[in-house]
Amino acid sequence: MDAAVGVLRTSVLYKAADTFASASTLGISGDPADLAKVLDLGVKDGALAGLAGNDTVAVDTLLADVVQASVGDRVELLLGDGTTVRPRVVATYDRGLGLGQVLLPRAAVTGHVPAAYDSQMLVRDTRSADRAAVASALQRLDAPGVTVTDRAGYGAQVDKDLELSAWANGVMAMVLGGFAAVAAANTLVMTVLDRRREVALLRLAGTTRRQVLGMMRWEALLVGTAGIGIGAAIAWATLTPIARGLTGGAPYVPPGVAAAIAAGVLLLGLAATGLPARVLLRTRPMEAGAARE
């Protein structure tokens, strides 16, 4: 076995502005120098090998920016039972969002969590290791509550969890989008039906059905395009600070999804405007004008 590192998953609180925020935390057991062999954290400054004793910590670069700390500084953290500690930063790394924003020696968190047992054991074989023998030995550890898997199995499980989360978020977005679509369509329909007198006047002036429908169609496209532009600007202004705070990057929408949303908005506007307009045009101009008298 080339490396074996135990991971105890927990969380800590850190002070951000005038409030406290939570950060996902890994309590590391074993040789911290082996951590880079089992986790590719993208170390930016310092070294993970310095993560020893009870007075050291490694933090994600985004979190380091929030608490304004760099290698050699001390950060104030609250452990699971409320104990305040001020460990010294020995390293900063880039890939903490999906792994852990804070790394502490396991000894520093053991007495401050409800169950001081490793959540995972990360191992790496030597190049000359007998893979079959290693797999057989690890399988003997498989028991209720204990899952033994390789990198591919772990990746598949993570992908499955992300897929389930994405599906749930998608359903929620569809429900909210459906309510918004119904409200927008209802507003457009009522607005068109309220223009009976205008349509009647246009018809009495000699405007053809085709010209009226064309006018309504262009109005719907104009309103839909304006709505897409304003909505995109509001969403961008709202999501950009959140995305930069969480990931350090800008929000991203797949081009296919963006095109589908834009097409849906335009089709909704055309349908909610064109159908009631056709209903109005079935009424004779004199009758439509008299209906408003």
Rank of each mutant, 00 (worst) to 15 (best):
G214D: 04
G178F: 04
A226M: 06
T240E: 09
E198T: 06
L176T: 14
G229R: 09
D142W: 09
A137E: 14
Y252I: 05
W236V: 03
E219A: 11
A181Y: 02
P241Q: 10
G256N: 07
G155Q: 14
L193N: 05
V253K: 07
M172N: 10
R195E: 12
A168M: 09
A233I: 12
V253R: 00
N169E: 06
A205Q: 06
L267G: 10
Q211F: 09
A259L: 14
V253L: 08
R195T: 15
L239I: 03
L266T: 00
M172T: 11
A200I: 08
I230F: 00
G245Q: 11
A220Q: 03
V175W: 05
P251Q: 01
G264L: 12
A135I: 11
V158E: 11
G178Q: 01
A156D: 14
Y252E: 03
W167C: 04
L239Q: 04
V192D: 01
T208S: 15
I242L: 08
L222F: 09
L164F: 06
E163I: 02
R196M: 01
E219L: 05
R140H: 09
A135D: 15
P251W: 02
M174E: 06
M190L: 15
A166V: 07
T247F: 12
M172E: 05
A235P: 00
R197H: 10
A137W: 08
I230S: 07
A185V: 00
A180P: 04
T191E: 15
A243H: 08
V265Q: 10
G231M: 09
A263G: 04
V158F: 14
D142Y: 08
M190R: 15
P144K: 13
L221Q: 11
V175I: 01
P255G: 05
A262L: 06
E163G: 04
T240C: 04
V253G: 07
W218M: 10
